[in-house]
Design a protein around this nucleic acid. Sequence first.
RNA 1: UGGGACGUAGCCAAGUGGUUAAGGCACGGGGUUUUGAUCCCCGCAUGCGUAGGUUCGAAUCCUACCGUCCCAGCCA
Length: 562
Amino acid sequence: MSNNSNNPESTPVTHFILNRIRDDVAAGKNGGNVITRFPPEPNGYLHIGHAKSICLNFSMAKEFNGCTNLRFDDTNPLKEEALFYEQIQNDVRWLGFEWTELRHASDYFQQLYDYARELISNGKAYVDSLPAEQIREYRGTLTEAGRNSPDRDRPVEQSLDLFERMKNGEFADGELVVRARIDMASGNINMRDPVIYRIRRAHHQLTGDDWCIYPMYDFAHCVSDAIEGITHSLCTLEFEDHRPLYDWILDNISIDCHPQQIEFARGNLDFTVMSKRRLRQLVDQGHVDGWDDPRMPTIAGIRRRGYPPAAVRQFWESVGVSKSESIIPMGVLENAVRNELNETAPRVMAVLRPLKIVLTNFPENETHWVEAARHPQNPDFGQRKVPITRELYIEQTDFMLEAPKKFFRLKPGGEVRLRNAFIIQCNQVIQDADGHITELHCSYDPDTISGQPGASRKVKGTIHWVSAEHAVNAEVRLYDRLFNATNPLADKQRDFSEFLNPNSLETIADAVIEPSMADANAGDICQFERTGYFVVDQDSNDNRLVFNQTVALRDTWAKFAG
RNA sequence: UGGGACGUAGCCAAGUGGUUAAGGCACGGGGUUUUGAUCCCCGCAUGCGUAGGUUCGAAUCCUACCGUCCCAGCCA
C-alpha cells in the first residue's frame, strides 16, 4: 500500500519535485499550469526504470490538473526503429496513462533548423569543419581547458551559407557540424562549444529522406520542450551537467517559453540490469527468450509475468523520488505485486508436483462437489464448485515420512484438513521397490465437511488438492531472479552476463489444476492457494494450459524448513 | 583547487533551526485464520558520513575533511 492510501492520518507522500511544482503553482508561475512530458527515444523496449519516469511525469501533471505529452525523441535515425514507436505507446497505456498529445522531436525539424539559423545569425553558433577526432582533441580533458576551433570565428554569412548547403546535401556525412559558440574553457565540458547539428544520410522512420542533417539531443530537447510549452522538464541525474546548456540555448533563441529542467535519481533494482543496451544484449545472445521474457525487467516482460500495472505504480510511489542513487530490493516490487494481487486475484487449487492419495473410505466412482469461495475475504468474487473424488493429488511437499515437530502437514498417522473439504488421516504409505513414495492411503472424516457438526474441528494444517479424475494438466513456469549478484555490473572486470542465474527458469510439465480453470485465457491471473500468483501465458492453446509464476506467496514456513 | 551531484536504520525515504527524528519494505514478538497467505496489535536510529564551530536550541546554518556517483559521443 502506498503510505497514505489506507490511513488518512499518515503523512502524505511528498518529494522535492512535488514540493517544487506546488510552490510554482502557488506562486502563479506559468499561469499556474503544469505541463510535463515523457520523452523516450524509440530505440528499444521500455523497462521498469522508465516506468518511474512515466509515473512521475503523469502523476505530477495529474496532481495539478495539468497535462502530459508523450514525445518521441527521434533525432538519431541510425539507432531508432519504427516498431518501437508502437511498442512504447502500448507500454505507457498498459501502465494506465493516456497522454494529452503525441509528439515527436521530428515534428519540429523545420523549427529546430530555423532556431539553429537564428543562433548562427547572432554569432552564437558556427559551422565547424574540424573532423570528429580533431573536435575531440580540441575539447581538452576533464582537467585541461579546450582550444578554440580555427573555424570558431568564421563569418556569420559564411556559416549561414554552409549550414544551408549542409541541409541541401552538398556535404558528406561528418564533413561539417554546427556548434554552439559558448566557452572552450568551461569546467563543464558540455559548454565547450557543443555540436548541435550533424550530417547523417539516414532514412528517418517518420520524415523519410527529407533531412540529411539531424539536431543533437542538447539542442533538440530543450527547444522541443519549449515548443510544447512544457513547464517542468523532469529527467534523470546524468543530465544535471546539461542543464546550463539547456538554459543557454533557450536564453539565446527567440522563443517565449523556458521550461525548468529538474533532475531526479533513477531507480535501480537489485539482481537485474536496467539499461536498454544490456537488455538488448541478453536478447541478442539468447540468454532470455526475447524482450518480453517474463524474467526481463521490461514493461513487456513484467506484463507477461503477470505484474499488474497498479502494483508498478504503487511500487514507485512507495519508493519515492529523490536525488540519491539507490538500489531497491526486488522484494519491495514483489511485495507491491502481492499486495495488489491479494485483492484482485481469484483463488484456485493447483498441485505443482503431484502425489496421489486414495481415500479408502470414499465411495468409488462417485463425485462430490464442494462449494469454495473464490476469495476468502471478498464475497463479491462468488463461489465455485470443486469436484472431490476417491483419488486425489496433493503436493509432494505436503507429506513427510519423518516430519519435524513443527510440520503441520500430512505425515503417517497424522491428520490434515483438505482445503474447502474435510479432514483426512494418513493410514498407509505405499512405496515402490526403490523406496519412492508412490501413493498414500488415507481415510476421511465425513463429519468434518462444511455444514456438518464437525466442520469446525481444528487441525493444525490445511492443504490443497485436486481430484485425479477431473485434474486439468498444465505446464507451469517458475521463475527466479535473472542474476546471482545483487549488482551484476559491480565487477568491472567481468561481463555482467557471467552473473546470470542458470536456474532462473524451471518448467514443470505436469502440474494439475482444478477444472474451473480449464477455459482460462491468456492474461488471466489467479492465486494457486498456498503457492503463489500465476498468470495464463500466451503460449497456451486449446490443448495446453501454460502458467507463469508471477510471484510466490510469502512463506514463513520455508524459512524454518530452509 | 576541472565541473556537477549525493551521503538520515539492513533497503528506500520524509524532514529546510524549537517537544520523545514521519512513513514503507525488511526483521523480531503476539493475536485471528479451513491458504504456515491475508488481516490486526506491539517492537525496531539518545541517532542524521566524520570533526570542529555558530546558537538558549542544529539532521537542518558555517568551516574542513572523508566516501560514493556522473561528465571528455558528430548517443539520448
